[in-house]
Amino acid sequence: MADIAVEAHNLTVSYHHKPVLWDVDFQLPQGSLIGIVGPNGSGKTTLLKSIMGLVQPDSGYVEIFGKPLEQVRARVSYVPQRESVDWDFPISVREVVEMGRYRPGRLLRRLDSTDKAIVRQSIARVGLEAFADQQIAQLSGGQQQRVFIARALAQQADLYLMDEPFAGVDATSERAILQLLAEMKVAGKTVVMVHHDLQTVQEYFDWVLLLNTRLVACGPVSSAFTEDNLRQAYGGQLTILSKVAHLVEEHDFPVRDRSKKQRT
């Protein structure tokens, strides 16, 4: 695996002082469609957020294209869950997609004609030209999801992190998104996606990451998406592990010992 898009090393992440990911280690190849799969509460979204730097890990680190996130932030784009915004917000489809062209240092600048063209193109690619000036509340769930994807496209990134883009989506939108994913793969983009429908994993993805607060398996779908691994991922949490997680939370205990001098 020569070209690595995402590498996580010994990643331990807590949510409200409770570990939800234990020492996760993996490498994801560039140019593939990668599914993160696991039961509810298995840390899928947390994993995506820690790749995106939105939650601070207790230990370990993530590298993207072999570099820390800060150096390659412009090459990564994030598609959050649809439920994460208030859809009554008075804003149009175009304005949301324009956010994909915002950069921290350039917030004071107006978008130029290149930006506008990219925004128009991105909206067209998800098939929402007719809705560009509509307020986002007037869209269906699947269309709303496509708005988020258009925004990510407008970022012109190389790595896309998507949190359940197929959740609550109508058939038309699902087809549109799948079509886009295929195009992105051809263009050499990497897509990492939290996914919860086991039926479609083999059809949609090249690579799969099975998670259940710990890493169960990570590899090409053909070798990693096995019955045995699925049983491990979905067969309930390991009793001792979840009890220890509970002890950590109850005692506000650190999951790494930082008292000692750094070893060299």
Binding site: N10, T12, W22, D23, D25, S59, F253, P254, V255, R256, D257
Partner: peptide, 8 residues
Amino acid sequence: HIHDSAEA
């Protein structure tokens, strides 16, 4: 990869 976790 297991030592650090066990340390805590």
